[in-house]
């Protein structure tokens, strides 16, 4: 009897499942590279270059994200106002407490 993986899982379990799948795919790629390359020296050399590029990419992305986060923190907070406050601004009256006069718009 085939047991299927549960469909309803926590986000953490889903993330771990994805990571496991990625590790397996990476292992297959690495084995293929080692088998097809002219020698382990070529594999190591190419892997070192790729690692350098990836680390630089991740570092640049992390740096950009940090700068954007700092900018968001230092910008003045945007006041989110509800409908009641907007009406009060326009008419000068609290719409829940006071009736408009004849010369004031409803």
């Amino acid at each position: 009897m085939v047991r299927r993986l549960p469909r309803e899982i926590t986000p953490g379990a889903a993330a771990r499942r994805t990571l496991l799948a990625d590790c397996l795919i990476a292992l297959v790629l690495a084995l293929a590279a080692i088998a097809l390359a002219a020698g382990i020296g070529v594999v190591g050399f190419a892997a070192l270059l790729v690692l350098l590029v990836l680390v630089l990419w991740i570092a640049v992305e992390a740096g950009v994200r940090r700068v954007l986060r700092r900018r968001r923190r230092s910008a003045p907070p945007v006041r989110r106002r509800g409908r009641r406050a907007q009406v009060e601004d326009e008419t000068g009256l609290d719409p829940l407490r006071e009736e408009p006069t004849a010369d004031q718009p409803r």
């Binding site: 926590t10 986000p11 690495a30 080692i34 190591g44 690692l51």
Partner: peptide
């Protein structure tokens, strides 16, 4: 609660990073 999907490019990058580390292990030993 649905888990947030990882963007494809980020997942591909993670796979390449893991594959690179896997390649570096035997090369490093040699």
């Amino acid at each position: 609660r649905r888990p947030l999907p990882i963007p494809f490019w980020r997942r591909a990058r993670r796979i390449f990073l893991l594959a690179t580390i896997a390649c570096l292990v035997p090369a490093g030993i040699s």
